[in-house]
Protein backbone atom coordinates (compact mmCIF):
# COMPACT_ATOMS: atom_id res chain seq x y z
CA UNK A 1 0.00 0.00 0.00
CA UNK A 2 1.71 3.17 -1.12
CA UNK A 3 -0.58 5.61 0.62
CA UNK A 4 1.28 7.04 3.60
CA UNK A 5 0.14 6.17 7.14
CA UNK A 6 -1.58 9.12 8.87
CA UNK A 7 0.88 8.77 11.72
CA UNK A 8 3.44 6.26 12.93
CA UNK A 9 3.82 4.88 16.47
CA UNK A 10 7.55 5.57 16.51
CA UNK A 11 9.80 7.65 14.28
CA UNK A 12 13.03 5.72 14.19
CA UNK A 13 15.79 7.67 12.53
CA UNK A 14 19.28 9.07 12.61
CA UNK A 15 20.76 12.25 13.98
CA UNK A 16 23.96 13.21 12.19
CA UNK A 17 26.43 15.56 13.83
CA UNK A 18 28.20 17.62 11.15
CA UNK A 19 30.51 19.04 13.81
CA UNK A 20 31.89 15.63 14.68
CA UNK A 21 31.98 13.81 11.33
CA UNK A 22 35.57 13.48 10.12
CA UNK A 23 34.66 12.13 6.67
CA UNK A 24 36.39 8.76 7.14
CA UNK A 25 33.74 6.80 5.15
CA UNK A 26 33.72 4.01 7.75
CA UNK A 27 29.90 4.21 7.82
CA UNK A 28 29.82 3.85 4.02
CA UNK A 29 31.90 0.68 4.20
CA UNK A 30 29.98 -0.77 7.15
CA UNK A 31 26.67 -0.06 5.40
CA UNK A 32 27.78 -1.64 2.15
CA UNK A 33 29.16 -4.65 4.02
CA UNK A 34 26.05 -5.34 6.09
CA UNK A 35 23.57 -4.69 3.32
CA UNK A 36 25.47 -6.76 0.79
CA UNK A 37 25.70 -9.81 3.04
CA UNK A 38 22.21 -9.71 4.55
CA UNK A 39 18.64 -8.72 3.60
CA UNK A 40 17.69 -8.36 -0.08
CA UNK A 41 19.69 -8.12 -3.29
CA UNK A 42 23.40 -7.39 -2.66
CA UNK A 43 24.78 -3.92 -3.40
CA UNK A 44 26.68 -4.56 -6.60
CA UNK A 45 29.84 -2.98 -7.91
CA UNK A 46 30.10 -2.38 -11.64
CA UNK A 47 33.55 -2.53 -13.28
CA UNK A 48 35.30 -2.35 -9.88
CA UNK A 49 38.84 -2.34 -11.34
CA UNK A 50 37.99 0.09 -14.15
CA UNK A 51 35.57 3.01 -14.18
CA UNK A 52 34.36 1.67 -10.79
CA UNK A 53 30.85 2.51 -9.75
CA UNK A 54 28.35 0.78 -7.55
CA UNK A 55 25.30 0.96 -5.35
CA UNK A 56 25.57 2.66 -1.98
CA UNK A 57 22.84 3.41 0.54
CA UNK A 58 24.97 5.95 2.34
CA UNK A 59 27.37 8.42 0.74
CA UNK A 60 29.61 11.10 2.25
CA UNK A 61 29.70 14.37 0.35
CA UNK A 62 32.07 17.19 1.31
CA UNK A 63 31.19 20.86 1.11
CA UNK A 64 33.17 24.06 1.45
CA UNK A 65 31.45 26.73 3.50
CA UNK A 66 32.50 30.37 3.37
CA UNK A 67 30.89 32.21 6.29
CA UNK A 68 30.28 35.97 6.11
CA UNK A 69 33.18 36.44 8.52
CA UNK A 70 36.12 34.22 9.30
CA UNK A 71 37.81 31.41 7.48
CA UNK A 72 36.29 28.86 5.09
CA UNK A 73 35.53 25.39 6.46
CA UNK A 74 35.28 21.93 4.98
CA UNK A 75 32.20 20.02 6.14
CA UNK A 76 31.85 16.28 5.63
CA UNK A 77 28.24 15.52 4.88
CA UNK A 78 26.90 11.95 5.25
CA UNK A 79 23.64 11.37 3.44
CA UNK A 80 21.27 8.42 3.42
CA UNK A 81 17.49 7.98 3.47
CA UNK A 82 15.83 10.47 5.85
CA UNK A 83 12.71 8.26 6.33
CA UNK A 84 10.43 11.25 5.69
CA UNK A 85 6.97 11.55 7.26
CA UNK A 86 5.66 12.81 3.90
CA UNK A 87 7.79 10.52 1.79
CA UNK A 88 7.14 11.38 -1.90
CA UNK A 89 8.98 8.20 -2.96
CA UNK A 90 6.24 6.05 -1.41
CA UNK A 91 3.15 7.62 -2.96
CA UNK A 92 4.50 7.59 -6.54
CA UNK A 93 5.17 3.83 -6.51
CA UNK A 94 2.71 2.03 -8.82
CA UNK A 95 3.33 -1.52 -7.62
CA UNK A 96 3.14 -1.10 -3.85
CA UNK A 97 6.82 -2.03 -3.48
CA UNK A 98 7.57 1.19 -1.59
CA UNK A 99 5.97 1.58 1.80
CA UNK A 100 6.31 3.33 5.15
CA UNK A 101 5.83 1.20 8.25
CA UNK A 102 3.14 2.23 10.72
CA UNK A 103 4.95 0.75 13.72
CA UNK A 104 8.27 2.58 13.43
CA UNK A 105 8.12 4.89 10.38
CA UNK A 106 10.88 3.10 8.44
CA UNK A 107 10.56 3.50 4.65
CA UNK A 108 11.27 0.20 2.89
CA UNK A 109 11.19 -1.39 -0.58
CA UNK A 110 9.67 -4.83 -1.13
CA UNK A 111 12.09 -6.05 -3.80
CA UNK A 112 9.73 -8.84 -4.87
CA UNK A 113 7.22 -6.22 -6.08
CA UNK A 114 9.64 -3.61 -7.51
CA UNK A 115 9.62 -3.30 -11.32
CA UNK A 116 12.62 -0.99 -11.43
CA UNK A 117 10.90 2.00 -13.03
CA UNK A 118 12.95 4.43 -10.94
CA UNK A 119 10.11 6.89 -10.35
CA UNK A 120 10.63 6.80 -6.56
CA UNK A 121 14.27 7.83 -7.05
CA UNK A 122 13.05 10.74 -9.21
CA UNK A 123 10.62 11.76 -6.47
CA UNK A 124 13.28 11.80 -3.74
CA UNK A 125 15.01 15.19 -3.38
CA UNK A 126 17.91 13.72 -1.41
CA UNK A 127 19.23 11.06 -3.78
CA UNK A 128 18.55 8.38 -1.19
CA UNK A 129 17.42 5.70 -3.65
CA UNK A 130 19.48 3.94 -6.28
CA UNK A 131 18.54 1.14 -8.67
CA UNK A 132 21.06 -1.65 -8.36
CA UNK A 133 22.49 -2.12 -11.84
CA UNK A 134 22.93 -5.88 -11.39
CA UNK A 135 19.66 -6.76 -9.61
CA UNK A 136 17.46 -4.16 -11.34
CA UNK A 137 15.56 -3.32 -8.18
CA UNK A 138 15.47 -0.18 -6.08
CA UNK A 139 17.81 -0.14 -3.09
CA UNK A 140 17.63 2.20 -0.14
CA UNK A 141 18.59 2.52 3.52
CA UNK A 142 16.53 0.11 5.65
CA UNK A 143 17.74 1.69 8.90
CA UNK A 144 19.24 -1.81 9.28
CA UNK A 145 15.79 -3.20 10.09
CA UNK A 146 17.46 -6.62 10.16
CA UNK A 147 19.84 -5.49 12.96
CA UNK A 148 17.78 -3.24 15.23
CA UNK A 149 15.21 -5.93 16.11
CA UNK A 150 17.60 -8.88 15.69
CA UNK A 151 17.69 -10.90 18.89
CA UNK A 152 20.51 -13.06 17.56
CA UNK A 153 22.81 -10.07 17.87
CA UNK A 154 24.28 -8.85 21.18
CA UNK A 155 22.22 -5.95 22.47
CA UNK A 156 24.91 -3.33 21.79
CA UNK A 157 24.91 -4.33 18.11
CA UNK A 158 21.16 -3.72 17.67
CA UNK A 159 21.58 -0.40 15.93
CA UNK A 160 22.26 0.51 12.28
CA UNK A 161 25.68 -0.60 11.01
CA UNK A 162 26.68 2.99 10.20
CA UNK A 163 25.95 4.13 13.76
CA UNK A 164 27.64 1.10 15.32
CA UNK A 165 30.82 1.63 13.33
CA UNK A 166 31.23 5.43 13.42
CA UNK A 167 34.56 6.00 15.23
CA UNK A 168 33.82 9.68 15.83
CA UNK A 169 30.36 9.23 17.37
CA UNK A 170 28.86 11.47 14.71
CA UNK A 171 25.83 9.26 14.08
CA UNK A 172 23.04 8.66 16.58
CA UNK A 173 20.05 6.32 16.31
CA UNK A 174 16.77 6.50 18.21
CA UNK A 175 13.08 7.36 18.32
CA UNK A 176 12.52 10.95 17.25
CA UNK A 177 8.80 10.78 18.13
CA UNK A 178 9.72 10.50 21.82
CA UNK A 179 10.71 13.99 23.06
CA UNK A 180 12.62 12.42 25.97
CA UNK A 181 14.81 10.14 23.86
CA UNK A 182 18.54 10.87 23.67
CA UNK A 183 18.31 11.76 19.98
CA UNK A 184 15.37 14.15 20.52
CA UNK A 185 17.23 15.93 23.32
CA UNK A 186 20.31 16.15 21.10
CA UNK A 187 18.24 17.76 18.36
CA UNK A 188 16.71 20.22 20.84
CA UNK A 189 20.01 21.31 22.43
CA UNK A 190 21.95 21.53 19.18
CA UNK A 191 19.18 23.08 17.04
CA UNK A 192 18.95 20.15 14.64
CA UNK A 193 17.63 20.93 11.16
CA UNK A 194 15.73 19.32 8.27
CA UNK A 195 17.37 19.15 4.83
CA UNK A 196 15.50 21.00 2.03
CA UNK A 197 12.48 21.96 4.17
CA UNK A 198 11.01 23.73 1.11
CA UNK A 199 10.37 20.31 -0.45
CA UNK A 200 7.77 19.59 2.24
CA UNK A 201 8.95 16.03 2.90
CA UNK A 202 9.17 16.39 6.72
CA UNK A 203 12.27 14.21 7.16
CA UNK A 204 12.66 12.20 10.36
CA UNK A 205 16.49 12.26 10.26
CA UNK A 206 17.98 15.47 11.59
CA UNK A 207 21.33 17.16 11.02
CA UNK A 208 23.22 19.01 13.74
CA UNK A 209 24.94 22.05 12.21
CA UNK A 210 28.63 22.62 13.01
CA UNK A 211 29.18 24.67 16.16
CA UNK A 212 30.65 28.16 15.78
CA UNK A 213 34.42 27.76 15.89
CA UNK A 214 36.64 29.36 18.56
CA UNK A 215 38.47 32.47 17.37
CA UNK A 216 42.26 32.28 17.02
CA UNK A 217 44.16 33.70 20.04
CA UNK A 218 45.95 36.17 17.79
CA UNK A 219 45.31 39.64 16.39
CA UNK A 220 42.91 39.73 13.44
CA UNK A 221 44.91 39.59 10.19
CA UNK A 222 44.28 42.22 7.52
CA UNK A 223 45.85 40.36 4.66
CA UNK A 224 48.72 42.79 3.82
CA UNK A 225 50.97 41.91 6.76
CA UNK A 226 54.41 40.35 6.31
CA UNK A 227 54.27 37.57 8.88
CA UNK A 228 58.08 37.04 8.74
CA UNK A 229 58.91 40.71 9.39
CA UNK A 230 59.22 40.35 13.19
CA UNK A 231 61.76 37.56 12.76
CA UNK A 232 63.84 39.38 10.12
CA UNK A 233 64.02 42.77 11.91
CA UNK A 234 67.56 43.74 13.23
CA UNK A 235 68.15 42.75 16.85
CA UNK A 236 69.73 46.16 17.56
CA UNK A 237 69.79 49.25 15.34
CA UNK A 238 73.30 50.30 16.46
CA UNK A 239 76.15 47.79 17.06
CA UNK A 240 77.80 47.73 20.48
CA UNK A 241 81.11 46.45 22.01
CA UNK A 242 83.42 44.39 19.76
CA UNK A 243 81.06 44.65 16.80
CA UNK A 244 81.04 48.46 17.14
CA UNK A 245 84.92 48.52 17.12
CA UNK A 246 84.98 46.16 14.10
CA UNK A 247 82.38 48.28 12.33
CA UNK A 248 84.30 51.57 12.84
CA UNK A 249 87.68 49.90 12.11
CA UNK A 250 86.45 48.53 8.81
CA UNK A 251 84.82 51.86 7.90
CA UNK A 252 88.23 53.60 8.30
CA UNK A 253 90.10 51.31 5.90
Amino acid sequence: MTSLPASTDKKLGLVIDLDTCVGCHACVTACKGWNTQNYGAPLSDIDPYGAAEGTFLNRIHAFQVEPDQGLAQTIHFPKSCLHCDDAPCVTVCPTGASYKRVEDGIVLVNEDACMGCGLCAWACPYGAREIDQAAGVMKKCTLCVDRIYNENLPEEDREPACVRTCPAGARHFGDLADPESAVSRLVATRDGVDLMPEQGTRPVNKYLPPRVKDSLQAPEMEGAEDILAPFLAPVAEEPKGFLKWLDTALEKL
Binding site: E53, G54, H61, V65, T74, Y207
Partner: peptide, 17 residues
Protein backbone atom coordinates in the same frame (compact mmCIF):
# COMPACT_ATOMS: atom_id res chain seq x y z
CA UNK B 1 21.46 23.92 5.87
CA UNK B 2 25.05 25.08 6.42
CA UNK B 3 25.55 28.73 7.33
CA UNK B 4 27.50 30.72 4.75
CA UNK B 5 28.17 30.33 1.06
CA UNK B 6 28.12 26.60 0.28
CA UNK B 7 29.88 24.92 -2.63
CA UNK B 8 30.68 21.28 -3.31
CA UNK B 9 34.23 20.43 -2.36
CA UNK B 10 34.28 16.71 -3.15
CA UNK B 11 31.76 14.23 -4.52
CA UNK B 12 31.19 11.12 -2.41
CA UNK B 13 32.93 8.84 -4.89
CA UNK B 14 35.30 9.42 -7.79
CA UNK B 15 33.11 7.41 -10.17
CA UNK B 16 29.67 8.18 -11.53
CA UNK B 17 26.63 6.55 -9.97
Amino acid sequence: RLRGKVSLWERPHTGEN
